[in-house]
Design a protein around this nucleic acid. Sequence first.
DNA 1: CATGGCTTATAACATAGGTGAGCACTGACC
DNA 2: GGTCAGTGCTCACCTATGTTATAAGCCATG
Lengths: 246, 246
Amino acid sequence: MADLIRLKLEHYTRLSADDVQLLSSLSTLNIRQIQPRRDIFREGERPKVVNLILDGWAVRHKMLEDGRRQILAFLIPGDFCDTKNFVLSEMDHSVGALTAVTVAQIPNEMIQDIERTRPRLSQALNWDLLVQLAIQREWTLNVGQRSAIERISHLICELFVRMKTVGLCHNGVCNIPATQTDLSEATGVTPVHVNRTLQEMRARGLIEWKGREVRVPDMDALQRVGMFNAGYLHLDREGAHLDANE
Amino acid sequence: MADLIRLKLEHYTRLSADDVQLLSSLSTLNIRQIQPRRDIFREGERPKVVNLILDGWAVRHKMLEDGRRQILAFLIPGDFCDTKNFVLSEMDHSVGALTAVTVAQIPNEMIQDIERTRPRLSQALNWDLLVQLAIQREWTLNVGQRSAIERISHLICELFVRMKTVGLCHNGVCNIPATQTDLSEATGVTPVHVNRTLQEMRARGLIEWKGREVRVPDMDALQRVGMFNAGYLHLDREGAHLDANE
DNA sequence: CATGGCTTATAACATAGGTGAGCACTGACC
DNA sequence: GGTCAGTGCTCACCTATGTTATAAGCCATG
């Protein structure tokens, strides 16, 4: 479990033995458990630590005054909740646990140390941040231009690829602990319409979804519907590695 | 004009005389002019330099295979087109000029030097990147949850605030060189409906828009309609400075 | 094994916003 | 000073998706 982050960062760069050592020490130090549906941090708080997800799923989300809520990202094991947010004085959104979540709380100073003394690791953190930005851009495109079925297909493709990079998706099957309401908040579609759309997707043989288990019998077909192109995830350097995993 | 970037970064931190010196040297070195409606760089290219906009407006955008296009951000003087993108091997989107644009092309190595030797400036670059990320999140929320009139109002509020921080907006008037088609691509609404919505906004006295000149007679009213809260722009440290500017 | 709270599924109806086509204005260019 | 391209504007019609409401399934708990 401690190797998740390593697995993820090594998609970008080869880390030294020292770097790997440091990373695994991070994931044993200062662990916090969060109950399902509780917040890990809230909009308006001052960032005190950097949270690294070791286990479970979380969502980045933001609410409008009138209660409408947008899910801005799904966070899975190996993801940072708030990579370098200590640079900002206040969080502008919240992160909540979807399932029970385990995070490693990394002191801000430790990240700053890394930035000063570990060029490799520091570049890897920059890479992580830039990929977050690329994902957020893709989500803007998703919600802005694609139809309901395209949005949901695209989202599922992204989750499958990201879960694969941390070894949590095999043989076209993946555990996705999101309800239809969560999907609706992530895609900007009403829950009723998400339901309709999922049924159409089932009818077309694009997905099977029972409880948390999602099966994609034909990933190419799903990618075509969602107009999904993994380029924005920038896994290029270790593309071979990814395939080997499958 | 060379002081734009300084004006912007000083919303985050006080820079030393040395830092300021360095910044103005950047904006005289290696200048490039781009014609209106031409691209500054394209999806798929390898990032060779970091582009800093000195004059004019640009848009970050991405296209779907079938031609639908989403504008992901408006870039105004003082903005980086691609802050640290040399970390990635390939651009996942394009940036195009809206008007004639002047950029300073900063060699990647120069940015890396700054990261190694100028902690203040380096933090300021991190801040800039995190604010970009926050803006992108807000856009996802905008497109995902708000109605057409809310989206457009929110967008205008953001542009006004950002233009103010670089001294390009005074007395409730601002030059916005975007067509209704541009607005439609930024907000995920059809051009026809943007037109309808702008007319409603004019009728309600929220905006006056002639050519490129946009007047907002009552900013509070517009902010209420767009549910705009400037927190995500993280201008807190120099909030006083901002007001003094007006 | 009854209770209650999520979650999924439905149905009937309503509407914000999309589509396609066309016209009028403006300013740049020959 | 006529042509042309880009932009703004309108209209009539259409549909993907939203709304409201209800019911059924499922699982955790006492």
